[in-house]
Design a protein around this nucleic acid. Structure first.
Lengths: 212, 212
DNA sequence: ATTATTCCGTACCGATCGGTGCAGAAGTAC
DNA sequence: GTACTTCTGCACCGATCGGTACGGAATAAT
């Protein structure tokens, strides 16, 4: 599991697990979970099937580890954003990060979380749930941060933090889709800047859930 | 092919092709192109493998026909929007239509075009290209409409119609993703209304493509 | 040296994929 | 009725899926 073992007796591993995971992340990012076949993964990782299973468990475990690497790397802008001092800065850093992450040179365009599991057969349900949980987590992070901003009078009192968080996520998701479709970074940057000029958006607390 | 034949000699078809196509569209919408297996499709359509091949050709042909049905049905809001008299109305109808289409009761949430083919193996490349072309077509429709609005002084002269079209598409895509993730129609409606309050967004023509 | 432990390539497993051949059932035309 | 056309269910095809058993190669401890 770890890169350093306490007593590595036996033949040492013939590849760098970190580099292999990086390659696997890229393949998942490009092709999604089900679309990434084991031959595609292992050939990109430069190792054989057996070595992958020995080092990472199975395909699902490999994906989970790749996702962690993704969240800590290219998609770390979420946690960075909520550390900003004002709500406007939070939104700005978040959306600029979304644009940057979705158009990184050397990586697939768009967002791994969206490309990997909007769809799929029934056996990919676990992966879908995992990614949905991760996106919900990010949204909860933003909600909490915006709630604090309301309490600090950094946002109008009637602002609904949850709705504002979903607003920001919606723009970020749209950016990811556009990037996956070939949109240029400069264009997306102009678009999110246009969105950010409308701040804070008028998102009052919903009056009441109307009867279904 | 058609629902009416000129001389239907021989045993008549034992199912309604239109109803079957509707079911197939739903399965593709829910599971994507590759995620929709033939057993899943045929069981939803209520017919056997062979009947599907006889009536629709193959899986790819079936998808193409389902997509046409989708574009003429749940996703017809694009062409409806550009018929509106002002640019603001165009954007409003488009985004309201996106929200409605992505949260239709009795249908999968989100947008078929996104769920079906953001990802996939190599053999799904043709499907991806098809859907990308369709989205580009919609964007071109909006671009053309906004260009007309600029000429009619319905939008500021310095507005970039292509960029504005991408802006609207970006919001629409974000809405579709959020809907697929479980967002409620009422919340999405509030979000797009907040976006529409910022109209026209400041999207000037890009100064010049900076040297790569 | 010997022994133990680990890595890794080959070859294989059952399951499922999209697609098809075939024969019988079901209908129309005469 | 007979002849002919079309539909449809069953069984099957080769290819590919994720996953594994096995044996040889390589390194560490002794």
């Amino acid at each position: 599991m770890d890169s350093k073992r306490s007593a590595p007796v036996g033949r040492p591993r013939g590849f760098d697990a970190d580099e292999a995971l990086e390659k696997a992340m890229t393949v998942f990012w490009q092709n999604g979970y089900e679309g990434a076949s084991l031959p595609a993964l292992t050939s990109a990782m430069g190792i054989s099937r057996t070595s992958m299973y020995a080092a990472f468990g199975n395909k699902e475990d490999l994906f989970r580890k790749a996702l962690i690497r993704y969240a800590d790397g290219p998609a770390s802008y979420g946690v960075e954003a909520v550390a900003e001092p004002t709500a406007q800065r939070v939104a700005t850093v978040f959306l600029h990060g979304a644009v940057r992450s979705a158009t990184l040179p050397g990586y697939p365009t768009g967002c791994l979380s969206l490309r990997a599991a909007l769809i799929g057969g029934e056996d990919a349900q676990a992966i879908r749930n995992l990614l949905a949980a991760w996106r919900d987590e990010t949204r909860a992070l933003l909600t909490k941060r915006f709630r604090r901003a309301v309490n600090e009078h950094d946002l109008p009192a009637k602002t609904d933090p949850a709705l504002l968080a979903r607003y920001v996520m919606t723009i970020g998701n749209g950016v990811a889709v556009q990037a996956a479709g070939g949109a240029k970074r400069a264009d997306l940057r102009l678009i999110v800047d246009a969105v950010l000029q409308n701040w804070p958006p008028a998102l009052a607390r919903v009056p009441k859930k109307h009867l279904a």
